[in-house]
C-alpha cells in the first residue's frame, strides 16, 4: 500500500453528488463516471486526475451511498484520496473498490508530490512526513487484495 502522485487540492465537505452527479448513475459504463467526475465542481478537473492524489478538506464523500463516486475517481486515474476525516460510507466504498484513503490533515499546493505508505502509516508532502490514522487490519487486507471482490475471491 505505497504510492506516489501529484496533489490535486480540494475544499471541505465535497459530497458524492459533486463527485458524480445523479444524472450519470443510470449506466454500468465506468467510463461515463470517469468522464463526468467532479463535473459540477469544476469541469476541467477530470482531465487532471491521472496519477493524482486528491488532498481534500474534512468530510470528503458525504451524502449519498453511491459507490460510483469512488469508482469514478479510480477510473479517472486517482491514486489515493487524503482528507482529515472521510464520510463513513465513502470510506468503506473506496476501500472496497481498492482506492487507498489517507486519513491525515495535509496542507500542500496543487501539483506538489505526495507519497504515502499505509502499512507503515505515513504520508509525505513537501519533505514533511506525517503519521496517518491507521486502517483496520481488515481494511488493509481488502486494499492489499485490490478490493472486496478480489478479497472474497481469494478467501474462497
Amino acid at each position: 500500500m505505497r504510492g506516489k502522485g501529484k496533489a490535486v487540492c480540494l475544499g471541505a465537505d465535497i459530497d458524492t453528488d459533486l463527485v458524480i452527479a445523479g444524472r450519470y448513475l443510470r449506466t454500468k459504463d465506468r467510463g461515463v463516471w470517469a468522464a463526468h467526475v467532479f463535473e459540477d465542481l469544476d469541469p476541467a478537473l477530470a482531465r487532471r486526475l491521472a496519477g493524482a492524489v486528491i488532498v481534500a478538506g474534512k468530510n470528503f464523500g458525504c451524502g449519498s451511498s453511491r459507490e460510483q463516486a469512488a469508482i469514478a475517481l479510480k477510473e479517472a486515474g486517482v491514486i489515493a484520496v487524503a482528507a482529515p476525516v472521510f464520510a463513513r460510507i465513502f470510506f468503506r466504498n473506496a476501500v472496497n473498490i481498492g482506492l487507498p484513503l489517507i486519513e491525515a490533515d495535509l496542507s500542500c499546493m496543487d501539483g506538489e508530490p505526495v507519497a504515502f505508505d499505509l502499512e507503515a502509516g505515513w504520508v509525505e508532502t513537501g519533505g514533511r512526513r506525517k503519521p496517518v490514522r491507521p486502517l483496520s487490519p481488515r481494511m488493509l487486507a481488502i486494499l492489499r487484495a485490490g478490493g472486496l471482490v478480489e478479497y472474497w475471491r481469494e478467501q474462497r
Binding site: 460510507i89 468503506r92 472496497n96 473498490i97 471482490v149
Partner: peptide
C-alpha cells in the same frame, strides 16, 4: 446503517 454496493454484495454472499 447504509453501505455501498460492494459491501452489500458481500452481505448477499
Amino acid at each position: 446503517t447504509g453501505v455501498g454496493a460492494t459491501d452489500m454484495a458481500a452481505i448477499w454472499m
